Amino acid sequence: MTSTTGRIRMSPEGRREQLLELGTQLLSTRTLDEISIELLAEEAGISRGLLYHYFGNKQEFHVAVVRRAVEQLVAITAPRDIEDPLEQLAASVGAYLDYVVENYTGYVSLVRAAAGGNEELRAIYDEGRRALTDRIFEVTGEAGLQALGLSDSPAIRLIVDGWSAMVESVIVAWVKDPHGLSREELLNRLAHALPALVLL
């Protein structure tokens, strides 16, 4: 699917934005290693030389694409106007689940790359995870935290971090094999697991 957009004069910012968007689209169905400068150039209909003008090398390109993908995930899972904090939590987890479903191959490769010793990718991954967990404390408010059985303390934030890691692991496994759990059942169990962990 080679486009003709390479023949359209664009500003440097606009071109880089276009390439990042294309990179994140490719990441939805490919691993990071499969997304090369050559592939992106072919898909965008531009020369490799022009791509190297925007991204110095493959690693720089991968870092930029992963950062954009994480930004999209954080935006997609943003809280909605839901009064009940447990329902809000389930809705955010549901948006996260939908993102993983739609971007499974790329997301799993991102997680593996972050765990595989790449410090830049690990830092971006950690920033995204931190944004998702901090949101529970920053957006929910004191009354909402109390409704969830939470308080804002280092110990509780540690538990929330662990819950977040569990949610990721369970969702990635569920997408591959639902194990007899419906989407609704899965989200309900994951949302209720957080207050249950805290109240143990």
Rank of each mutant, 00 (worst) to 15 (best):
S3A: 11
R7Y: 00
I8L: 14
R9Y: 10
E13Q: 08
R15G: 01
Q18P: 02
G23V: 00
T31F: 11
L32I: 01
E34P: 06
S36M: 05
I37A: 15
I37W: 14
E38K: 09
L39Q: 06
A41Y: 10
E42L: 04
A44S: 06
A44C: 05
G45K: 06
I46T: 05
L50V: 14
Y54N: 09
Y54P: 05
F55H: 14
K58T: 13
F61K: 02
H62T: 12
V63E: 13
V63R: 04
V70W: 09
I76P: 10
I76Q: 14
R80N: 05
E87C: 15
S92H: 03
V93Q: 03
L97F: 01
D98C: 01
Y99D: 07
V101C: 10
V101N: 04
N103T: 09
T105F: 04
T105W: 08
Y107R: 03
Y107A: 01
A113L: 10
A115P: 00
A115Y: 09
G117D: 01
G117P: 04
E119P: 07
E120Y: 07
L121C: 06
R122D: 00
D126R: 13
E127H: 04
A131P: 06
L132N: 06
T133P: 02
D134K: 02
R135W: 06
L148E: 07
I156N: 10
R157A: 10
R157H: 14
I159H: 11
I159A: 13
V160Y: 05
D161K: 13
G162T: 12
W163T: 11
A165K: 12
V167R: 04
E168Q: 08
V172H: 02
W174T: 00
V175S: 00
K176E: 09
K176R: 00
K176W: 00
K176N: 02
P178L: 02
R183S: 06
E184C: 03
N188V: 07
R189K: 14
R189A: 13
L190A: 13
V198P: 14
L200F: 02
